[in-house]
């Protein structure tokens, strides 16, 4: 058994888990943070994307023990109370989801993408950056639209702050 402690969404958590426990299992089973989904379980679909030390990773392809000592952000950690994160808001406003299963991973990937590219995102970049996230409903059109809208809003807010 591994003793695991990490910061999840700003909160220090700890627990015991088998060494083979995946990060996504630890988040869902030990911490009851079920917003992070398991879609394919073969490292392809991206429904399980979370941020570990500020970088988007597939939590089904990392052991919980590997993430011990790290700072993890899940979909539950994005909103500020009732106020949605700009990316969540953009998915809502642009109908960036249908069944919603892939949405947590899409949003975590989008937040990471916008952080890395800033306001420079264009449609081709968004589509290529979504390589690791699969959606079976939307045909991606409104997901791309949502991410571009959020990037514009976040980019604009950054400019205003500077």
């Amino acid at each position: 058994m591994a003793s695991i402690s990490m910061t999840v969404n700003g909160r220090t958590v700890s627990g015991e888990a088998e060494d083979r426990t995946l990060l996504v299992e630890f988040l869902r089973s030990n911490l009851a943070l079920t917003g992070t989904h398991v879609g394919c379980d073969t490292s392809q679909c991206g429904a399980c994307v979370v941020h570990v030390d500020g970088k988007a990773v597939k939590s089904c392809t990392m052991l919980a023990a590997q993430a011990s000592g790290s700072s993890v952000t899940t979909i539950e950690g994005l909103a500020n109370g009732d106020v949605l994160h700009p990316v969540q808001k953009a998915f809502h406003e642009n109908h960036g989801l249908q069944c919603g299963f892939c949405t947590p991973g899409m949003i975590m990937a989008a937040v990471d993408m916008i952080e890395r590219h800033g306001g420079d995102l264009d449609e081709a970049t968004v589509r290529s950056e979504l390589e690791g996230n699969i959606c079976r409903c939307t045909g991606y059109h409104n997901i791309v639209k949502s991410i571009l809208a959020a990037a514009a809003e976040i980019g604009g807010a950054r400019q205003a702050a500077e």
Binding site: G46, A56, K58, A109
Partner: peptide, 9 residues
């Protein structure tokens, strides 16, 4: 290589 999440690891 792979996708952005894979490239981070």
């Amino acid at each position: 290589i792979g996708d952005p999440h894979v490239r981070h690891m």
